[in-house]
């Protein structure tokens, strides 16, 4: 028995990391990092209790939603502006993404143009809509125009990337065949590529419109028009009842937008 004990084999689970020490080191680093992060926030018990109370107050004041005629008008006005912004931005964004996509397609654009196209797309995708909105507001002033420009630019990044990839994937042979008929490069693209991807663009536009509705409700927080402006005003005036009413209205609009978008996309396919 004793000898048997000695030759008993061990087993431990192989790890995705280099070895078990590395694994534990990685875990330790993660744990320390989380603790450090938490410590940075300096959460105290008192603060949590206080927060709990004011949170409960906020929720109770939410009901019934505050809707004097004046505020209802503000709400509707802001909401209409938001939705209008989302519609305009989706259409303009989708349309101008077509030339940008050609600029950003590696297989057809000359180098400098390609880099400009890619740069436009990368910047659009890297920055949050609010960062873009706040800068646009500084350039063109407070109001819905800034919102439309910001949303359009985000939409452009979304579409141009997809389209550019589509263009890069097309069959070179087919392109040459069309070129052989005497069409120039742009014509080839317009007649050879765009019609092919059109159904997808329509589906994606509706999807993007849904996203744009969401974004259009918040860009007002930095002054770019829509219901977000109404929201931030009520916040600044400590009018938290109305604030919560607006939040609920935004949730409703966003959910309806999502349902409509899902339904319509289901129908086209």
């Amino acid at each position: 028995m004793a000898t048997k004990q000695e030759e008993r084999r061990e087993w431990s689970r192989p790890t995705a990391f280099y070895n078990h020490y590395v694994k534990w080191a990685v875990y330790a680093v993660i744990a320390v990092f989380l603790l450090w992060s938490a410590w940075n926030m300096r959460i105290s018990y008192a603060r949590v209790v206080e927060g709990w109370n004011s949170g409960a107050g906020l929720v109770t004041s939410m009901f019934p939603p505050e809707l004097t005629p004046f505020k209802t008008d503000l709400l509707i006005e802001g909401m209409v502006e938001s939705i209008a912004m989302s519609v305009v931005a989706t259409i303009i964004g989708a349309v101008i993404s077509i030339p940008v996509a050609f600029m950003a397609a590696e297989n057809i654009a000359p180098r400098p143009v390609y880099w400009v196209g890619r740069g436009l797309i990368t910047v659009s995708r890297a920055f949050h809509e609010l960062i873009i909105a706040i800068i646009v507001v500084k350039a063109v002033g407070i109001g819905a125009l800034a919102g439309v420009i910001a949303l359009t630019y985000k939409t452009l990044g979304f579409f141009a990337k997809l389209l550019a990839e589509e263009i890069e994937d097309i069959d070179e042979g087919q392109m040459e065949a069309v070129e052989a008929t005497g069409a120039n490069g742009i014509q080839t693209m317009l007649f050879g590529v765009v019609p092919q991807v059109m159904p997808r663009i329509v589906g994606l536009s509706i999807y993007r419109w849904d996203i744009n509705i969401r974004h259009s409700t918040i860009v007002g927080i930095v002054g770019a028009g829509g219901i977000g402006s109404t929201l931030i005003n009520s916040f600044d005036k400590y009018d938290y009842d109305f604030f919560m009413t607006i939040v609920l209205a935004i949730v409703a609009v966003v959910i309806v937008g999502e349902l409509v978008s899902t339904y319509v996309r289901g129908r086209i396919q």
Binding site: S54, G55, I218, I221, F235, Y240, V247, I250, V251, V254
Partner: peptide, 14 residues
């Protein structure tokens, strides 16, 4: 359905 910036406003209130 509630954007992060709106959640941020809510938690700043709280």
């Amino acid at each position: 359905s509630v954007n992060v910036i709106i959640w941020a406003l809510v938690f700043v209130i709280i």
